[in-house]
């Protein structure tokens, strides 16, 4: 699993660059590098469904973020209580990592998962659903409620975006409202 360590180190470096660099377009592209690293990691961890989805989602996130950075206002101010804020943030992160170190010990060891629920799915998935792709049989047959909830959340997010971005109701009266933009 050496390649996984290398990939994760690369992703950590990419995340640091994405947060610290001053040019916004470079920052967005560094996030794209981190996302493609996640996609490759999914491929190494034997999850091809997720690798395909993550690849496409990464491209869409990149388009949306570049769309956001087209407004060229890039403030970089470090005034105020800079030292106190930084110290408090680092203490918080240190405490978080310490707690995470002890919490990780309770997880199953890497490479040997507990297959209590999934054992049934693996053993009887093909017989009960007839689908060769076990992930599809889990999300659409054994746990289809989960997918129904996901569809609801997606619908709500679409409604939210359209409501926030529309123009009617936010304009003054003398301005012309474009009809296409409902």
């Amino acid at each position: 699993m050496l390649e996984l360590y290398i990939l994760l180190s690369f992703m950590i470096i990419g995340a640091v660059i994405a947060l610290e660099i001053k040019d916004m377009i470079s920052s967005v592209i560094a996030v794209g590098a981190v996302g493609l690293g996640v996609s490759i990691a999914f491929l190494i961890l034997k999850a091809p469904d997720l690798a395909i989805t993550q690849l496409v989602v990464e491209i869409l996130i990149l388009i949306i973020l570049i769309r956001l950075t087209l407004k060229r206002d890039l403030p970089f101010s470090t005034s105020g209580r800079w030292l106190l804020n930084t110290v408090v943030t680092f203490i918080f992160i240190a405490v978080f990592l310490g707690v995470a170190y002890f919490a990780i010990k309770d997880l199953p060891e890497f490479g040997s998962p507990i297959l209590r629920v999934a054992g049934t799915y693996i053993a009887e998935g093909l017989k009960k659903t007839g689908a060769a792709n076990l992930v599809a049989s889990v999300i659409l047959d054994f746990r289809a409620y989960d997918t129904l909830g996901e569809a609801t959340v997606l619908f709500t997010a679409v409604i939210g975006v359209i409501t926030i971005m529309r123009k009617i109701g936010r304009k003054k009266i003398d301005e012309v409202v474009n009809e296409e933009d409902e």
């Binding site: 469904d49 690798a51 395909i52 496409v56 689908a131 792709n133 599809a136 049989s137």
Partner: peptide, 10 residues
């Protein structure tokens, strides 16, 4: 989607 990697989301 039920035979190869992929499915409705991807």
């Amino acid at each position: 989607g039920h035979l190869t990697p992929g499915g409705g989301f991807a």
